[in-house]
Amino acid sequence: MFSSITTAISNYARVIFAVLGLVSLYPNVEINNVRAIEKRGAIYAQFTTRSLINEYLLQIIDSGIDIYYSVEATTYLTTKGREREIYRNILIKRISHRGNSYILDNEGFRSWKKLLTVLNTNSILILPAEKRVRGGTIKTTIVLKIFSDAVPDLMNLWGNKPNIVLNYRINES
């Protein structure tokens, strides 16, 4: 009884905040386990996601609409107080549903959960070896997006605009 009242109140409060533009009624995309790793001189950002494809997006995918998931990394170098872009990398994955299979790019999955496992594990090159610079501060922003040719405002089905900001410095050695 008490918990149902509490839930009702919290739902109403969420609606009020949503109308006021403070929150969204759609689930937020969570980003976890963010780390930067070095592989043969290049630097990669790795992270996991949650609620990337929520029930509303799944409905759209199930209806046969192809949607695209992109991870865009932009790396900036700040030297002597000036910031400039030194590298940009975009990974785009197509998610579609054909027959009884879910397809991620060209890879097919029988189960939706298996596709999600792959989709939720992300790795992106943020600074290649030849772009490595010494001195100065490096900042990388990683922005996740979702879009579709058929649905113009698909990002609205995410409760937030997920992004990561990494600040780091490369040692002289």
Partner: peptide
């Protein structure tokens, strides 16, 4: 008709958003 199904699913997916927008207009 796959196009009809798509349109309906899009409508349903965005129904909450639309409800919020209409409420905001009323507000």
């Amino acid at each position: 008709n796959p196009e009809m199904k798509k349109s309906i699913e899009i409508y349903l997916a965005f129904s909450q958003k639309r409800a919020v927008e209409i409420t905001r207009d009323s507000l």
